[in-house]
Each structure stands twice: as structure tokens, then as C-alpha cells.
């Protein structure tokens, strides 16, 4: 145990090591190199052994096994993670900006009265202080922050850090769960079941062309010409969160942190500002063309080509121009 160690929460929803954990380990290694400490990975599970091979970039893998940790539940996981933190007293705790992270990181900070930063894109340790650059306001602002107290809890945005390479020498150590950890059914928040999306809708992760719409579409009726454009391109229509929240498209069409991750050959982003949560799900596309009225929209940071224009002014001429190209 050392106050210079960096602890990573290795989350495993539905029995799969979350993709962001490799990035967290990469960030943790950079910080640990600065402190001279070790990289610790905490796995909270009914049986953590299947995840050990994916955590070999850590120095130590702390495995908390308990039947109550078979599926994620905020209270139970928080209690188990708190036990690890109390035993290890790390300098910083790195948590992904994920569905689980959005519970665990703020609850942990509030319980421990510890400093928390959200939307962390860069992190370093200088003069004993954790320094971070964080994204806020949907990526329209950045904040450089400094944290003196330990443990600093950093919620890391996916895509911000290079994944760590495996050393293959991580030491696996069992950690006793809290003695009073309730049985799964005894918890105030008890997992009941996973609910999978209904089958039958278009699988947007399998499409080579996606026409994505965001808040700039303004009304549901505007989806019709956009669907025609997508049909012409042999693709499908997908969306950012506000469109799904409005009920204009099903959740199976949502791209981003809590939706789908897509990597089409063409991603035509219409009226999407490019909040980090959306970019996370589409930045791996081969060609990104973005249309937005706001010249400062963060989507232009990830797009290959940008157009500053109202999307509805462009859709019809674009449909005609593509139609013309296809018929010649």
C-alpha cells in the first residue's frame, strides 16, 4: 500500500471487461510513473479470475470476490470499492465515464468527502498535485484543474488516453469483501435482470453508411427527407441522444456512450454538436462529414469535412446531387 499508487476500477458489466479499462490503465501508468507508485486494478465480481488476463498492464490486481458482486449494484460495489481504497490509500482513483462510473465516482466522492473531477481528458501529477484537463458544457469548454487532497477521483472520458501495454507480470491479490456486505436480495438496490433491445430494428453497427441526426433537425417531420438521403446512400439513419429522448427514433439507433459504437465508411453528421458522449461512439468512422450552424461545434474537431449551414438547407440539394451522380 502506498499513497503514491493509482487505483483503476476495472468494471465488468454483463461479465465483460469494459473497453475503457485499458485506457484507464494507460492513464494510471502515466500518473504512477510520476509518483513512483504502482498501478492497481480493482475487480469486483462473483469470480474475478476470468478478467485477470485483461488487466496485465497493472502491477497488482486486487480481486474482491463475493456472490453479491455477480452483477453491478451501486451500493454493493461502492462498499467493496471503499474497502479497497481504505486498505490501499491510493493517490488517485480512475473511473470510466460510463454508466457504472456515473454512479460510483460521485457516490464515492460524496461518501469519502474526496475531490472529484468529471470529463477528464488529460491528467498528470506535478509537485505532488494532480492536474487535469476536463471537458464540460458538451465539449464547448475546458477547465484546467488542480487537486491537492487524496484520493483524487477522476472520471475519465473514453478516447482520451492511450491504452496501456501489458507487462504480463501483474500480481493477483484477493481482497476480503466487507464483512457486512448484504446478500444480493438484501441490498436496498437489488439487480433483477438485463433487458436487451427488441430484435428486428436495423443494426447500425453493421452499416457502411450512416446518416446521423441531432438536435439541429428541429422537428420529427424532417426525418423523412433524411431517411430518403440515407436510402439513396444505401445506409441507415441514426441519431444523437436528444432525438432518441424525444422518441423520434428508437434507442437502437442511438450513437454514443450509452448507445452504439459505430465505425462506418461514411458518417454524415447532420445538426449534431459533437458532445464527448456522442463522439465516443462514432470517432472511429472512416470518413466524417459534419453539418452544423455553429462554427465552434466540437463535431468539427473530429470531422474530416465540415459545413457551416442549416442541415435542412443542404439535405435536398445533396440528395439531388447524389442522385445525379448515381444516374450518370
Amino acid at each position: 500500500m502506498s499513497a503514491s499508487d493509482i487505483l483503476v476500477l476495472a468494471e465488468t458489466p454483463r461479465g465483460v471487461l469494459s473497453g475503457i479499462v485499458a485506457e484507464l490503465l494507460g492513464a494510471a501508468r502515466r500518473l504512477a510513473d510520476a509518483t513512483g507508485g504502482h498501478v492497481l486494478a480493482a475487480v469486483l465480481s462473483a469470480d474475478g479470475s476470468p478478467f485477470v488476463s485483461g488487466l496485465q498492464a497493472a502491477d497488482r490486481i486486487l480481486v474482491v470476490n463475493h456472490p453479491s458482486l455477480a452483477e453491478y449494484s451501486p451500493e454493493l460495489f461502492l462498499a467493496a470499492l471503499q474497502a479497497v481504497i481504505q486498505a490501499e490509500t491510493p493517490r488517485a482513483v480512475l473511473v470510466g465515464s460510463t454508466s457504472i462510473g456515473w454512479d460510483v465516482a460521485p457516490l464515492l466522492a460524496a461518501r469519502l468527502n474526496a475531490p472529484l473531477v468529471l470529463g477528464c481528458q488529460q491528467a498528470s501529477i506535478e509537485d505532488g498535485q494532480v492536474r487535469a484537463t476536463c471537458s464540460l458544457c458538451g465539449g464547448k469548454m475546458l477547465a484546467n484543474v488542480r487537486i491537492q487532497e487524496a484520493p483524487a477521483i477522476l472520471m475519465i472520458l473514453p478516447g482520451s488516453f492511450t491504452p496501456a501495454t501489458s507487462t504480463g507480470k501483474a500480481q493477483v491479490e484477493p481482497v476480503s469483501p466487507p464483512a457486512d456486505l448484504p446478500a444480493p436480495d438484501g441490498a436496498r438496490v437489488a439487480f433483477r435482470q438485463w433487458i436487451l433491445p427488441p430484435p428486428g430494428d436495423v443494426d447500425i453497427t453493421a452499416q457502411t453508411v450512416l446518416v446521423a441526426v441531432g438536435r439541429g433537425i428541429q422537428q420529427k417531420e424532417n426525418l423523412e427527407p433524411i431517411q430518403q438521403l440515407a436510402d439513396l446512400l444505401g445506409g441507415a439513419v441514426c441519431a444523437s441522444r436528444p432525438i432518441v429522448d424525444q422518441g423520434w427514433l428508437p434507442t437502437t439507433r442511438q450513437v454514443g456512450k450509452s448507445g452504439m459504437t459505430v465505425k462506418p465508411k461514411l458518417y454524415l453528421a447532420l445538426g449534431i454538436s459533437g458532445a464527448p458522449e456522442h463522439v465516443e461512439g462514432m470517432s472511429g468512422s472512416d470518413l466524417i462529414i459534419a453539418v452544423n450552424t455553429d462554427p465552434k461545434a466540437p463535431i468539427f474537431d473530429v470531422a474530416d469535412y465540415g459545413v457551416q449551414m442549416d442541415l435542412m438547407d443542404l439535405v435536398e440539394p445533396l440528395t439531388q446531387a447524389i442522385q445525379a451522380k448515381k444516374t450518370t
Binding site: 458489466p13 454483463r14 452483477e71 453491478y72 449494484s73 460510463t98 454508466s99 438496490v189 437489488a190 439487480f191 433483477r192 435482470q193 438485463w194 433487458i195 436487451l196 433491445p197 428508437p250 434507442t251 437502437t252 442511438q254 456512450k257 450509452s258 448507445g259 452504439m260 459504437t261
Partner: peptide, 10 residues
């Protein structure tokens, strides 16, 4: 959760 998956809790 990602992928239009939900976890149901009591």
C-alpha cells in the same frame, strides 16, 4: 448501459 441495454433494479 451501452448498446441500448438496460439493467433493471428493485
Amino acid at each position: 448501459f451501452p448498446g441500448a441495454v438496460m439493467a433493471q433494479y428493485e
